[in-house]
Design a protein around this nucleic acid. Structure first.
Lengths: 235, 235
DNA sequence: GCTAGTTTCGGAACATGTTCGAAAACTCTG
DNA sequence: CAGAGTTTTCGAACATGTTCCGAAACTAGC
């Protein structure tokens, strides 16, 4: 994907025809960052961004296809700054490290859960993220998988990762007025323990792992299971 | 959670005080179903639902906390009709069957991806769904896990399931105008294969499994990995 | 320099979810 | 029966993302 593919109608800057643009994509992203840094990320709306740029709200839609499109551009910019890891040499560890890196970068991104639901999300990811995807598939191949199996493994890892990001994003305290149960764990918040005897039996002995480590540990179990399954399917 | 907990201010019908309600929750759900069956589920908006009931749009908000609240009530109604399975006796199979049942019910629900992101989602699920959760935790315990490990296993399964539902919901063709790659698989649609040599190497030999079977197969690998991990952690 | 084509710009408008404030209808207490 | 308290009802309004349609500004070709 080229850099300006997300923009709906913008041609290349060279050899333009028609009215010259007052607004460039770099300016838009810079203005968005300014709003986020100054007023907080919840304040980033289409109208406010247009106002920050000094243009009409409608005009923005000639540089950005969507609100979603804008967010994905911001995400790619964010990934460029945060998504860089030394990947281990051992393939199984490398798979885990790459997936955790993707996860951590997304987890630190305010709109992750929102943007995760966008159409063709994987295809719109920018450079560092795509290399991580490739690293996962390649790692699976080095573990003895076929490429098809490697792709399948990535797909499953991606489901798991997306789900964790999704649940994590919304296990925060968005609405303060909902009934919740004090179990020391936000995941099961609001669950009526009287109908879940097994859950109730835990009492306060909830896992002390941080959410990120729960993810990483589950991921490792998943990778092991997937590689085992691929190996036994090969026979 | 009691049955009317989702409704913000409605007291029990018995011993009411104040103006008698013209609208009951049963009527609201029935009207919603009428709209869905007649006009399609995309047409279900707050205003249209109010119009269908013959009341003002604002009035609806005294019977329903949120749009989200309405959707979750519809989901619970949907689950009551669709979510009923004979669970196998063998615990590992039972875990998989329960998870697949939850998955299938959600996958058939138009707002699944939207509602999945709601705060405290698990705690707002109705009866048949909660039993499935319990079945998963109980199955893990029968496999030799502690309750803590069982809960953790459910949590991981839930991440995976939520992610699959999420990606599945948006790998449909919502926007027709996006560039896409004909790979015979909607998951990687739009991915620039030139930057993913391993993916490109597959060519047209994409897995022929239906999306549901891909989920079930990955789930089985995951459950095996999780149970193995729990067993080795016990030592 | 004029026309045609192309691109950017933006005000008005629409549908959406949601909130505000006031009025109406009812029960209970005195 | 009168007032207090409570609940339901709803029109008006707000912020949001987004589209319509026309105007403005520029290049290319004649």
């Amino acid at each position: 994907m080229r850099d300006d593919d997300c923009v709906s109608t913008s041609p290349a800057s060279r050899g333009r025809i028609g009215r010259p643009p007052v607004t460039t994509r770099a300016q838009i992203l810079a203005a968005a960052r300014r709003i986020i840094d100054r007023d907080g990320w919840e304040k980033l709306t289409v109208r406010r961004l247009a106002a920050e740029l000094g243009i009409g709200g409608t005009t923005l839609y000639h540089h950005v296809r969507d609100r979603e499109d804008l967010l994905i551009q911001l995400l790619n910019e964010h990934a460029k700054r945060t998504l860089s890891v030394e990947l281990p040499a051992e393939p199984r560890d490398r798979i885990v490290a790459a997936a955790v890196a993707i996860h951590d970068s997304l987890a630190a991104w305010p709109w992750a859960a929102e943007v995760l639901t966008s159409d063709g999300f994987l295809g719109r990811l920018g450079e560092p993220a795509v290399s991580m995807v490739e690293a996962i598939v390649a790692g699976a191949v080095e573990c003895g998988c076929t490429v098809e199996q490697g792709v399948d493994i990535f797909r499953n890892i991606w489901y798991y990762t997306a789900g964790e990001i999704l649940v994590r994003a919304h296990s925060g305290q968005r609405r303060a007025d909902r009934p919740r149960v004090a179990v020391g764990d936000t995941f099961f918040r609001g669950v009526d323990l009287s109908r879940l005897p097994r859950l109730a039996a835990i009492g306060d002995r909830w896992p002390t792992l941080a959410a990120r480590d729960i993810y990483a540990q589950g991921l490792r179990a998943f990778v092991n299971g997937l590689l085992d399954q691929a190996r036994s399917a090969a026979r």
